[in-house]
């Protein structure tokens, strides 16, 4: 029963995607849109295969930027969330700033970072940190807040220190929340790097997309976009796998819900 349900859960979106792609293919083949404006899915796949060697170097750069930024964002969020959890005053002071920081469009900040930090990797990494940081810390803070108060009282009654309570109860309890934030941030990380490259630089998928767009190679734009999607999905999947490995008890808790 359960296997059947899981399969149908995966099957439904797959059928929808195939259906949409088929419509797209039919529209282009039927001549409703010229191919240089909108290439057909099969054209895109062909170009994807032939341009992968060209894109390889750019993919590696984008991945490096995204992963570095992602890692920095995780460390940064952990430290800050710990401080905010331990000292309510820190939370009161920083929480509004966190929200405000998210209201500034990244498209305005990215060119400034290029102005300040040049055309290398650094401004891209900063963009990635900025877009990843928020979902991670918010989910972590919510996780820390959602801990069963009785559990904390139980540990207190055992004479546990604040640090012990954090390590034994609060941090593990917030892991579920943390991982959902990490999954969102993982997909943002690739996007952040691409935006950074798009606005200035000479390497990376974002830079590649700008270059092929300027030469009106729309099929290559689509192929590169496919790369972005695949990279994001891969990171998303990796996070899920890490979660399942590090939290063997979690699958059950989820099922119970």
């Amino acid at each position: 029963m359960k296997v059947k349900k899981e399969n149908s859960n995966k099957l439904i979106p797959l059928i929808l995607v195939l259906l949409l792609v088929a419509v797209w293919e039919a529209v282009v083949r039927g001549g409703l849109v010229p191919r240089f404006i909108l290439p057909s899915p099969i054209d895109v796949l062909k170009v994807f295969v032939t341009t992968i060697p060209d894109m390889k170097e750019h993919i590696l750069v984008t991945l490096q930027e995204a992963l570095t930024g992602f890692a920095i964002a995780i460390i940064f969020s952990l430290i800050l969330a710990m401080a905010m959890d331990r000292f309510p005053a820190v939370k009161k002071a920083l929480y509004p700033l966190l929200i405000v920081s998210q209201t500034i469009p990244i498209i305005i900040l990215a060119p400034l970072f290029i102005l300040w930090f040049g055309f290398g990797m650094l401004p891209k990494i900063i963009v990635v940190v900025l877009v990843c940081f928020f979902p991670i810390i918010i989910s972590l803070l919510e996780g820390l807040n959602s801990v069963d108060l009785d559990m904390i009282n139980l540990l207190k009654s055992m004479g546990a220190s604040k640090a012990q309570i954090f390590k034994i109860v609060k941090l593990p309890a917030s892991m579920v929340g943390l991982f959902s934030g990490l999954r969102i941030a993982a997909t943002y990380s690739i996007m952040g790097a691409v935006i950074g490259e798009w606005l200035g630089g000479d390497k990376g998928i974002g830079f590649y997309i700008v270059r092929v767009k300027h030469s009106f190679a729309v099929d290559k734009v689509f192929a590169a976009t496919l790369v972005v999607i695949i990279l994001s999905m891969l990171l998303f999947k990796v996070i899920t796998i890490i979660q399942n490995l590090s939290m063997p008890w979690f699958r059950y808790v989820e099922q119970k819900k």
Binding site: D150, G159, P172
Partner: peptide, 18 residues
């Protein structure tokens, strides 16, 4: 003063991750 007598609740309060 905490840490002297032990206290058990109606909920088992076992930590699911341990």
């Amino acid at each position: 003063r905490t840490g002297r007598v032990s206290y058990m609740y109606q909920k088992d309060l076992l930590l699911p991750w341990l």
